[in-house]
Computed example of a mutant assay.
Amino acid sequence: MSQSPWAAAQRVFIRPTRNVLYACMYPFKGVLFFIGHPFLYPLLRARLIPAFLLSAFVLLNLFFWAYLPQVAFLALFHRAGSAWVNGTFLVLGEGAAIVAILFEAFLVDESQVDAFDAVLVYKGYDDLVQPFRPVSEDSLNNPVERLGKPIRSSVYGPFSFRQIAEFVILLPLNFVPYVGVPMFLLLTGYRAGPLQHWRYFNLREFDRKQRNAFARRRRWEYTWYGAVYLLLQLVPVLSMVFLLTAAVSSALWAADLETERRQQEARVVQPSEYTDDPEG
């Protein structure tokens, strides 16, 4: 039976577009959730001073030594003031790559795992977290304090040399006037998006084939989510704060995916509430 034009439009265009827009909003939801839930603040406080100092040191040096030479080079290809804009994004991208190598891979991961798990516990998905770490049953209003030490390998996102290499290789896209920066964010977001759900994939105990299939079904959602995530990483000095709020946002998305999955499973396996007795 053929679909109506409206049903076909919903399936092909409206729903995918809506899902992409929802995915784009999660990084901002993560920021708002973090601000509104003080139980997450201690996770940032322990990293705040070294994060700000490292980010400031890297960016100040890049802008002092590399900004003007790169703007001068870009001015050979750009018109008007676009060389200054693209040069700014180029230096910020270089700073994000350096900070990610120096800081994210070695110092932030544990805090991101705690933030991700705490949000899932807050949302009521203790059962996802418990196989990897104990979750206290005490009536605490603080999900972070309910988390015990991990008893299994707990990694928020694996250090991906390939992602860093692609990030650096694609930086020259910022040379392209006007469209270079959006292209750079989308192409790097293609890989960055699914990596933000690495912890969720582990909690679901996905193997590589299952991870790839799950990400492939949501490819555009993950790409745009990753692009917005990387855009926040380009904010001077605050990039380290947004690393933590990114873990919050990915956990909020994971919780919504879990809600949807469990509702679908409940509908499939819903038992009959009653049966009629046959008439005698």
Rank of each mutant, 00 (worst) to 15 (best):
L187K: 06
S4L: 06
F106S: 13
P194F: 07
D138G: 03
L171K: 04
L140Y: 00
V241M: 07
A46M: 01
T88R: 06
R262Y: 02
F214G: 05
K29F: 11
L231S: 13
L48G: 01
Q264H: 12
M25H: 02
L140T: 09
L147G: 06
L60R: 05
I98N: 05
V91T: 14
E273S: 08
A96K: 09
Y200P: 01
V241P: 00
Q196I: 02
A97M: 14
L21K: 04
N202M: 10
T259F: 09
D127K: 10
G189D: 04
Q70D: 04
P16Q: 05
L243N: 08
F116H: 12
N142Y: 00
T223E: 01
L231W: 14
P158Q: 13
E273D: 11
L68M: 12
N174Y: 01
L76F: 11
L120Y: 00
P38H: 11
I164Q: 11
F64G: 13
S160T: 12
V85E: 12
L244M: 08
N174Q: 10
S249P: 05
W198R: 04
K29D: 08
A266F: 05
A100Y: 15
R79G: 15
A266E: 11
E265V: 08
L32H: 05
F57A: 14
R217P: 00
A96C: 12
L76T: 10
L107A: 10
V108S: 10
F34M: 03
I98G: 08
P194Q: 04
L53I: 09
V235E: 10
A23L: 07
R267W: 07
F103W: 15
L231C: 13
P50T: 04
S111L: 03
F39V: 06
S4Q: 04
F63P: 04
R211G: 01
A7K: 06
S272D: 13
G95C: 09
V121Y: 05
S153G: 13
A100Q: 14
L44M: 11
S55H: 03
C24V: 15
L171I: 01
P182F: 02
A7N: 09
A23I: 09
P172V: 07
T88G: 14
G189K: 06
P27W: 09
F34N: 03
D126R: 10
F175D: 00
G124H: 01
Q270Y: 07
N174W: 02
P143V: 06
H78V: 02
R15Y: 10
Q10I: 03
S139R: 13
N86S: 15
G157Q: 11
G157P: 00
R47V: 13
A213W: 02
D117W: 01
L243Y: 14
S160P: 08
G124F: 01
L76P: 00
H37N: 15
N174M: 12
K149E: 11
P69C: 07
S239C: 13
R133M: 01
A165S: 04
R47N: 09
S55P: 00
